[in-house]
Every structure is written in structure tokens, then in C-alpha cells.
């Protein structure tokens, strides 16, 4: 009995929404306190007429703000849920397409494997090359270049996630045993990721002198915690929801042939 795509997609949307909510809670708990520390630096700059910051770093907190801080915090949470749903939709389509090829015990295991690959390829890898920054860091004149580099690393991460399993299947077709294939897969992932990290240029920005290093570190850690929460919640929720279909179909057909 095959599984309909619609039922997979619905679970992806629901799991994505839950993941977005979990990420919003993490933003509120761990990211917002660091953002507040960074905004103090931006406010100090605008009070000193921007003299503490190099040119181009003028805070966007100067003058009358377009949106209040409260609206930004609420907007951030809404954005997180929207992002969660969009990621959930993509996750469901990819899961349905590659389900029979994913390793792992049942749909829960497969879901967790896909979430781990997703986190590594589109969240962790770009974060290692172009790390996230709090407000008060980031030269507006280089944002185009940084965005381009970020997108390139993200796409290369996706490419590695596609190429290595494809290579694995080719080797399997030629009768290469599983243990040898796994060793080759790990070696290929390590070599390809090392090439991406070594060959793609990093961010051209320097962190301004008035931003403490521990603030930047705390922010990057908080950002990764939030991203990891989103992927973990997505993998858990989607996996559990998929397992419920399996449990129900077993209950409905206790004497299935």
C-alpha cells in the first residue's frame, strides 16, 4: 500500500509550523538577549554621532525608527514560523522523493536523518563560512557580496548532499560492499566540505572595534542553537507524525497479508 503525497505534505506543513514555533521560542530565549546587547552599541554610536563606528556602520537605530522594537520581536517570531512552514514543505517534497533511499529505522529514523543532512548542508555549512552577526556588525556596502557567498556555500552544501548519496548508489550497483561504501562516503564528505571551506572566500567584513568579541561569539552560538532547534523539531515532529500513519494502517489491517 503506497503512501499518498498529500498525506506526506500535510505532515510537512504541520511539522514545519511546530519547528518554526520552537525556533521562535529559541529566538526569544537565547537570540533576543544578545540582540539587545548589540542594539545598545548601535544606540551609543548614534549618540556619539557615529564617531565610534567606521563610516558606513551608522546604526539604523538613528532617528525615528520605522518599526518599534516590540514589532520587530513579534515580526521575528512570525518570520520564524513562516520560515518553518516553507522549510517543512521543502522537507516533505524531498522526503517523499527520496524516502526509499534514506537510511534509518522506519519513517522516524528517516526523518531524523534527512533533518540532520538539512541542518548540515543549508544551515551549518554556510554558518561556518559566512558566520551570522548581531546588529552593529556588518558593513552595508558588502552585503551583496556576503549574500552571494552565503548562497554559493548553501548551494554547494546541497550539491554535496546530492552527489555523495548518488555516488553511493553507483557503487552499490557495482556490488561494492556497504562497509567500503560508507568509508568512501565519509571520505568524500570530508574532502568536499574541506574544499568548500578552503576555496570559497570568506566574509570581507571586519568586526568593528566597539563590538566585543564575546558578543559576536554569543550571537553566533545563539543563532546556531536556534537553527539546530528548528531542524531537530522538524525531524522529530515530522518523524512522529509519519509513524502515526504507519501505526494507524497497522491497526486498521491487523491481518494484512
Amino acid at each position: 500500500m503506497g503512501l499518498s503525497f498529500g498525506s506526506v505534505l500535510r505532515r510537512g506543513v504541520l511539522a514545519g509550523m511546530l519547528a518554526g514555533l520552537a525556533a521562535a521560542v529559541m529566538i526569544w530565549l537565547v537570540v533576543e538577549p544578545v540582540i539587545r546587547r548589540a542594539l545598545v552599541i548601535e544606540d551609543l554610536r548614534s549618540m556619539h554621532g557615529g564617531q565610534a563606528a567606521p563610516p558606513g556602520f551608522a546604526a539604523h537605530g538613528g532617528g525615528e525608527p520605522l518599526v518599534s522594537r516590540t514589532a520587530q520581536v513579534v515580526g521575528g517570531a512570525v518570520t520564524s514560523v513562516v520560515v518553518g512552514i516553507a522549510v517543512g514543505v521543502i522537507f516533505a517534497v524531498v522526503f517523499a522523493r527520496v524516502r526509499e533511499r534514506l537510511p534509518g529505522r522506519g519513517d522516524f529514523g528517516r526523518s531524523m536523518v534527512l533533518a540532520a543532512i538539512g541542518f548540515a548542508a543549508v544551515s551549518l555549512l554556510p554558518a561556518l563560512k559566512i558566520p551570522s552577526n548581531p546588529p552593529a556588525v556588518g558593513d552595508p556596502s558588502t552585503v551583496g557580496r556576503r549574500t552571494m557567498l552565503y548562497a554559493v556555500v548553501l548551494l554547494l552544501g546541497v550539491a554535496v548532499a546530492v552527489v555523495v548519496p548518488t555516488m553511493d548508489r553507483r557503487l552499490a550497483l557495482r556490488g561494492v560492499v556497504a562497509s567500503t561504501r560508507w568509508a568512501l562516503d565519509v571520505a568524500a564528505v570530508v574532502v568536499l566540505l574541506a574544499l568548500v571551506l578552503l576555496l570559497v572566500p570568506g566574509s570581507p567584513d571586519q568586526v568593528p572595534a566597539d563590538v566585543p568579541a564575546d558578543l559576536v561569539w554569543d550571537f553566533r552560538l545563539a543563532s546556531l542553537a536556534q537553527l539546530a532547534t528548528m531542524w531537530l523539531a522538524l525531524g522529530l515532529a515530522f518523524g512522529l507524525l509519519m509513524e502515526r500513519i504507519a501505526a494507524r494502517s497497522r491497526a486498521l489491517r491487523p491481518v494484512a497479508s
Binding site: E32, L66, G75, T79, S80
Partner: peptide, 10 residues
């Protein structure tokens, strides 16, 4: 401005 905090966090 509305998506600002989430953009930083992401």
C-alpha cells in the same frame, strides 16, 4: 525591519 530579528538569528 519586521523580519530583522529573525534574519539575524537565521
Amino acid at each position: 525591519e519586521l523580519t530583522h530579528d529573525a534574519r539575524h538569528a537565521l
